[in-house]
Write a protein that binds this DNA or RNA. Structure first.
Lengths: 357, 357
DNA sequence: CTGAAAGCGCTTACAG
DNA sequence: CTGAAAGCGCTTACAG
């Protein structure tokens, strides 16, 4: 079978019809033609093993029916793999049945110009941007391009004029913090995510705001900088362990870092949750398997992927770009890494708070 | 900026040259032309913000410079996400710098015919098949297609005539089993992977063979069927726990199932490694974080992705399909879920062996 | 060194 | 209901 693939022209000739007619019945309105003609064409197509050339079709129609998934290359691989995998899963889940194919566009962040060339080369009808960082050149490109775009995993300011789909970081973090407070905790530490990410900034803000709304002013040393990677959680914990009086609970901006915290606690023989409660963010697969099982906020990544596909396809098919913000709620999943603070501890904490303020 | 993208024709007119000339300097041999001409063309291109249309170019050249990554949809998502993420990472790592783009082709296994249409539609120069199952229709398609193909994650029989890149399951499992035997273990159980996968079959065979070569005949009840998912590891362990005399070590066909085993042991208060040693396969991120940390075989998934890209591109560029088998070695990573069997235990085991045979 | 022209495989008005 | 033709945006021999 080393022969070339048959073209629509050969099908037309074989069926004894014009090439336009063949095209019509094969793709366009087949009810334009007599059923006898249609049948002839289909028969010929089958006989020759015809498969239409998507490239030629796309060029002629000025529509590729393919969507691009754009990632910046420098993202930490671990994060990328976890977030990316689920997101892609949801994206495909929606796009494929809607007759869209997907192309991966992996951009080296040291060469944004070149990256944009790979996007606007006619091969995709629209793109999703995966978790672009705060100063990403992709964002400014997206703002002035006329290609439909949906941003996932970064909640941009309203003023960006771009559609984005993300977990509601504000709501999600608030839920976690308020729950800890309800459990009697007040000295709650926070491990920040990678400062390049919108999500890191927003989660930190939500933490600060919620604490303050409850009359708690986090001290400087209650916060530690992380970068969303496991090891940074370990390091952050070493630092937070020095707080005096000690923190009774710690919220990490993602699960990877929470895993690092758990590991550090094991190393330093700090018991979770007896001595400190730990809460993560994402609800990765493994969060249920740590010892103790991690209390965390579920991040609906798959759903985000599906919604993104939906919103992107909507823009492609209506032909108009819009700027919606879809924020899916996170949901606290309480497991075993947290516990209520006992009365005695609570009063101790209250005392500390007084001295702190 | 709502105007249409400029075409090469407009660039040519702007520069005052023919469209063929513009094409030459922009892409082909620019040393064909005087540097003055070249300069004019480049200037015009920049002035107009020209980006070449990859679709049109591909159609004209009969070469897309894009590679397809084909997955069957029914694969368990967890597996897919873990294996897939790293593989894709390696694949991109190699393909992108070599000027290839990548397209995702997600095939619903209930409709293989249709799936093949998505592959042979002119949009890709070649494809990799990710872990096709034993009776996958993709395999028979690949054998009779003339499109370059590389199979990853399934070591096909030589007779398949297809190029594949995979971890060396035989060597990798042998290494794990022999190491356990060296540590004094003889009653070594095995948790099988999903029977649809080549890898599951091969890992089981390697286990059997290695055991037998060392004079150990695994009893029926030393093996339990799993499906590569965590929960099946749990179930398998419940079953293996019933062996009398008890198994002293268990090898799981992948880490997910090993995690299930660890979890089951915790539930049933079986101490690892004091009462039973556990070995996984894959060396997933989390394997280092279990308690106890999991001894496992490192599976070089990223490297597999890179090699696959390399071999695929080689086929595309030379224009000839070949059938290489590249088997990358797995490497045992010893952590804390295993320990040597004490002399007393060893003699007990020897005794058992005698009675068993 | 450069231009005119055919061609890649399809779609889509436009006549009839 | 159907065919002839122009066009999608590029590349590549082929003349000159």
């Amino acid at each position: 079978l080393t022969q070339k693939a048959p073209t629509i022209q050969e099908v037309a000739r074989h069926a004894g019809v014009s090439i336009g007619t063949a095209s019509n019945v094969l793709h366009g309105k087949s009810d334009l033609h007599s059923s006898k003609t249609s049948q002839k064409v289909w028969d010929s197509a089958k006989a020759l093993g015809y498969r239409s050339n998507h490239l030629a079709r796309s060029l002629a129609r000025q529509r590729t029916n393919t969507l691009g998934v754009v990632t910046e290359r420098h993202q930490p691989m671990m994060i990328r793999n976890l977030y990316f995998g689920y997101l892609l899963d949801g994206f495909l889940e929606y796009a494929v049945p809607h007759a869209y194919q997907v192309k991966l566009i992996s951009i080296l962040n040291d060469d944004p110009q070149n990256g944009v060339l790979h996007i606007e080369n006619g091969t995709v009808d629209g793109v999703i941007l995966i978790a672009p960082v705060i100063d990403s050149p992709l964002l400014s490109w997206a703002q002035q391009s006329r290609l439909p775009v949906v941003v996932c995993g970064s909640t941009l300011p309203e003023s960006s004029g771009l559609t984005c789909v993300d977990v509601n970081n504000e709501q999600a973090v608030r839920q976690a913090v308020e729950w800890l407070i309800q459990q009697g905790h007040r000295r709650i530490g926070f491990v920040k995510g990678d400062r390049l990410h919108w999500s890191a900034r927003q989660r930190e803000q939500a933490y600060m705001r919620t604490m303050q709304e409850h009359g708690i002013t986090p001290q400087q040393d209650w916060l530690a900088q992380g970068d969303y990677m496991l090891d940074s959680g370990r390091k952050a914990m070493e630092q937070l362990l020095k707080c005096r009086p000690p923190l009774t609970a710690i919220l990490a901006a993602n699960d990877q870092m929470a895993l690092g915290i758990i590991d550090a606690c094991r190393q330093y023989r700090v018991r979770i949750p007896a001595e400190v409660s730990v809460v993560g963010f994402d609800n990765v697969e493994h969060a249920a398997l740590t010892i103790p099982a991690l209390t965390t906020v579920h991040h609906p990544v798959r759903e985000i992927g599906m919604r993104a596909a939906e919103l992107l396809i909507e823009q492609v098919e209506t032909g108009e770009r819009f700027a919606k913000r879809v924020l899916l709620p996170g949901e606290l999943v309480v497991r075993e890494s947290t516990r209520p603070l006992e009365t005695e501890a609570v009063s101790a904490t209250n005392h500390n708070r007084t001295t702190n303020q």
